[in-house]
Amino acid sequence: MIALTHVTKLYGSVIGVNDVTVELGTGAYGLLGPNGAGKTTFLGLVTGQLRPSMGTVLVFGERPFFNARVLRRIGFCPASDLTERNATPQEWVRYLVQLSGFTPAAAAIRARRALEQVGLDEASRRPLGTLSKGMRQRAKLAGAIAHDPDLLVLDEPFDGLDPVARYELVELVRAWSQTRSLLVASHLLHEVEALHAGLAVILGGRLVASGPVEELRRLIDTLPSEVRVVSTNARRLAEVACRNPGVDTLRFIGDDTFVVGTRHPQQMAERIGITAREEGILVRELIPGDRSLEGIFGRLVQLHRGVAP
């Protein structure tokens, strides 16, 4: 469905994406990466807004840029909020459907149907400026699906939504992905996980990993992580830590602090905690490995570059 081969996109001297090669078949995918990682550029290339500076982008076997055949099969919901405040959702979606080449009568029917699908039929005649952000997100989604695309591409669709609106939108998108293909860009792992989508992780314009969420989780779990301990008897606790399997590195920072590199940071932290309690050692700080998304990304980059074992 989507094939990028050695794709690089440059904005002058700034790199948008860098030498990305990936093939995504039909199905649901999450494009995961922190802000500024190159997700929007990736989606811009896939949705025919941008041309690659180098390499080839194929969607449904064809280049999407300036290609009506491909664009007709793509629905895109950008990250930016709808600033078209005076138009109603009905007018806005009908406009977008007509831009896809439908007759006014067909566009009106499709717009109404899409707004019903996203649960916005009652508010469809209110100006967009009077709707909540969640409702405007739904209106954007309706605009993206009303022309019945084969591939739905969403850029940060859950950004800025309250938990209820987020849950409802996740459900909507998940229902969509049961029958059609989906590509969702997000910087939040749990959002992509909730969609039961495969993952492509992008960082610094590079694709560092791709695959099912479970596989990536397993992969992440095998990457070494650091546990930092500050204690009154750091040497004794370091001795205990070294007895554990899976210790890669250990280094002291002063007399009371040590950092241990391990593939099982959680177990290591638990073991040190138990020992400290049993032997009455005061532990001032016990920080298990960096489980934040940035930390995970960082370790995936290490793996990608061959730094991590």
């Binding site: 995504l24 995918y29 695959g211």
Partner: peptide
């Protein structure tokens, strides 16, 4: 790049 085979078809 680490590639793991995917996914829903």
């Amino acid at each position: 790049m680490t590639t793991i085979n995917t996914v829903n078809t």
